[in-house]
Write a protein that binds this DNA or RNA. Structure first.
Lengths: 217, 217
DNA sequence: AGGATTATTTTGATATATCGAAAAATATTT
DNA sequence: AAATATTTTTCGATATATCAAAATAATCCT
């Protein structure tokens, strides 16, 4: 539908829209790694194409068409991430960058077939939901591990931080989506958690616990 | 390494180099679907990058670096074709266009892992050889079905024509890479061939036989 | 050999995507 | 409310990739 650059802008607006209703030029420039001037230029183009509503000096918002396109790109990105992680065994912290490229491939049949090949996954390897063909996202009740009480049985559902350092750390500890964790004790000293995963005992710092999304068993 | 446009030019030069040593501006324009003026422009760029040797008004030739890059792109294209056909069951005549996009993804780890996932295939679904990581192509002794004599036992190794009509026709007849064929008789009337594949008898027109590459059993 | 034909390059122009610097609008501070 | 700071837009410029039309070189033909 659009160029890779256009698609990246739509995706960025979509991502920032989750926090604020209206998205600022500066914030877009920041997460896209471009200059505010470039953002203004592209925003103008996308507004002319009716994918964004732009009120000069105020901010931008996705139109319905724009949101639909953004969700399609998110869908492609997350499906490719599942493929890279599950089928090709590419490490957790590498898959994002590769999916950034793959998400721009234009071939509806490819995505349909890929979806089927992967068994119609609902969540990507980071635990983020994968929009279906009409752009609908499945909701789940999740809590942060940091907010769980001793005695609760949980499973890792996703991460709130996508930094390479964090993901590599989780890899090393062999913590993945679906890994079961039981909260044993919270250390008063530094709020770190004592946990049991299967037969293995481990502790996680408060900083780690704040970024792990869990589902209750 | 280069932009998708640059990569397409290198691939086109590589493809045309198989027929003639030196490749003409006009021929490049034709298979790339662009104008001769555009070709001259791009050829200049690629010559400055030492990927092509260009003698104005004479033609172009790949340098060693250029050939290496071309082979990498061909490798990626053909590996993706195997994936699309074997894993996603996408039809023979659709895979080429999708692979045209996928071949430009820049991620060495992805290609290594994909190669392993596919079981290190040596030939793509059209029977064309897949260059290895150092750009080496496996050679096979193949003959055209049209040149085979009655009594010979053969297997389909590839096609010499990649047109959608032709590939769809083969699909309909359930003829694939690896399908065994025994030549029974060549009809003097129109050179069409009477064949046996397993238990099934079939005839193929001379035109079809001229485009089927076979290996001897 | 020389005129005609064909192929190729040059020239000037367009569209995308980008940015630095300057100008304009908005927000904040005193 | 005026001065200051921040954000956003406009303006001019650059790089890629493209092409039509004009100019130029090579080749073909008689």
């Amino acid at each position: 539908m659009g160029t890779p650059a256009e698609e990246n802008y739509l995706k960025a607006v979509y991502k920032l829209s989750e926090k604020d209703q209206s998205v600022s030029t500066n914030d877009l420039a920041q997460i896209l790694g471009t200059s505010p001037a470039s953002v203004t230029d592209m925003v103008k183009r996308l507004s002319e194409k009716k994918l964004l509503n732009h009120q000069p000096y105020k901010g931008v918002r996705l139109t319905n068409t724009g949101k639909k396109m953004a969700l399609e790109i998110v869908r492609k990105h997350r499906l490719w991430e599942v493929f890279l992680a599950e089928k090709l065994s590419i490490s957790w912290d590498s898959i994002h960058d590769i999916a950034e490229q793959l998400e721009h491939i234009q071939a509806p049949e490819l995505i349909q077939k890929l979806d089927a090949f992967l068994g119609f996954p609902r969540f990507d390897p980071h635990g983020d939901p994968i929009p279906d063909e009409s752009g609908v996202l499945l909701e789940r009740k999740t809590i942060l591990l940091g907010q769980a009480k001793p005695g609760t049985h949980l499973r890792i559902a996703g991460v709130l931080l996508h930094s390479s350092d964090f993901l590599t750390y989780l890899d090393k500890l062999n913590l993945k989506i679906g890994t079961p964790l039981e909260v044993i004790e919270i250390m008063p000293f530094d709020q770190s958690m004592l946990l049991i995963s299967g037969k293995r005992q481990l502790t996680l710092s408060a900083r780690v616990c704040e970024h792990l999304l869990m589902t209750e068993e």
